[in-house]
Simulated assay, not measured.
Amino acid sequence: MTVTYSNAIKGMDINIKSARLSNGSAFPDAGSLSGASIPNENPLSGDATMGGAPDGRDLPEYVDFEWRESPRSPPDPTPMDPLSQAHKDWEKNMMDDFYSQPIKKQRVVIRNRVPAEVVNAVTGANRHSPSDQLTPASIEIFFIWTDNGIKLRWQIWHRPPSGIQYYSHHGGDEIVPAGTTMIAGYSNTTKNDKFTVILGGPDGAPMRYPASASGPYFSGTPGFAYTSRPIAGGERLVAFESEPELPEWVEFNWRLFPTSIPRKFLESDSAYAGRVSDVYDSLIKKHERILVRSRIPREVRDEITAATHNAEPHKVASSVIYLYFVWTDSGIKLHWRLKRSRPDKTFISVREGGDQVPQSDG
């Protein structure tokens, strides 16, 4: 198990006081987490990642967290001379203010929320792994601080001998940071499930037009494996935006890379690495530009624009649109889903459209 901590609260730092398991023992924590500070920050990119149990068999029942929240920036003005009495008084006032903040508590249940198929997939992948080597797969658990408490996400992180890492089996809480009005997910439904989609690399990362407040790149470049539920939990969430306009288009470069390249008998590390590189170079490079804005009905776009303009600090937006980019045997399909917030800060789907995509309930 790998644990990743993230803070999606804009302008607020998280200071973890304690993290304890059901038996009272300490659970490794990140200490402090800086608040989101750049536009369109992805809460699943993580602020701190650390190792945990080697596989899913030892998932904790729950973790009890205690923490304080404090403003990310200290109060101004800051006295320039650190040895002056004014600076000492300023520092004392800042610490007094910090310790005056209430200690917040939350129990995050883990074991009962991670499906058995996820645990079985990891233990199966690691069954023949040498004990002195990094296991080829692990469950990655995300603890994400939001304005509405700690949210839990999970996925399988694959690290095959080929060195091409990828992810599968995504799930957990819905993550909608305050003010976010567009979330994008990637899914792979190609019939040959022995391949994973590898984006970017020397061919370039996904791009959006026009550029957002954080730049022209649409997302990171994760590899993602086959799923039978591309718009129902199998997608990998990759982009969170609060832009006045949806992208006109998003452009992708990708290849389909084998999830496994077996080593030959007595093959050296250098020979194996060279063969993997040759396999990658021989793969067909694909490129596709997906129109987005023109595919969304005007009234839906207007609702998202209004939600962006009316967004309030530390509150979820009134509406959010999900864009699903689904890789199929006939190219990338776009499906969208409009959701509206409810009084309890959760979201309900009210409308969807776009391409029809392969979907299974399994």
Rank of each mutant, 00 (worst) to 15 (best):
E267Q: 02
D47Q: 09
T4P: 00
G185R: 04
Y209S: 14
T49E: 01
L323P: 03
A239T: 13
K104D: 05
K92G: 08
G185A: 04
G233F: 09
G353F: 05
A232T: 14
T328H: 04
I261N: 10
V197S: 01
V316P: 04
A53K: 09
K10V: 15
G201D: 10
P136H: 08
V316F: 04
G200K: 03
F347Y: 15
F240E: 14
H287M: 06
P79A: 00
Q155V: 12
H169M: 04
G223W: 11
H170I: 08
G223I: 03
A125V: 14
R236V: 09
P358M: 03
T78Q: 07
E235C: 06
A19T: 11
N126D: 01
A211I: 07
P74H: 00
S341A: 13
S6W: 00
G331K: 00
E243T: 14
A211T: 07
Y217T: 13
A232R: 15
D89N: 01
Q356D: 15
T308E: 11
S277A: 15
N23I: 02
N120V: 06
P71V: 00
D355F: 06
R342T: 14
V300G: 03
S34A: 13
H170L: 10
V276L: 10
S138T: 14
W157T: 15
S129C: 08
L291F: 12
S37E: 12
Y166G: 12
R153P: 04
T123V: 15
P222V: 05
V276R: 02
N112Q: 15
L246Y: 03
Y217W: 12
I183N: 02
P262Y: 08
R289S: 08
D193V: 09
D344W: 01
V114D: 10
E117P: 05
Y272W: 07
Q133K: 04
P313G: 12
F65P: 00
T328R: 00
S318M: 02
G163V: 02
Q359P: 07
E235L: 13
V316D: 03
F257E: 11
W157H: 14
L283W: 07
N253A: 14
G46H: 01
I9R: 05
S18A: 15
I304V: 01
S45T: 08
N15K: 09
E140F: 05
I144C: 03
F325D: 00
P102L: 03
F224V: 07
S129E: 02
G215T: 05
D97C: 10
I9A: 08
A121G: 11
Y167R: 11
I231C: 06
W254D: 10
T190C: 07
I304S: 03
A211H: 06
V176M: 00
D147S: 14
E174A: 01
A271Q: 01
G233N: 01
Q155T: 14
P297A: 07
G51M: 10
E251V: 11
F65Q: 04
G362Q: 08
G354Q: 01
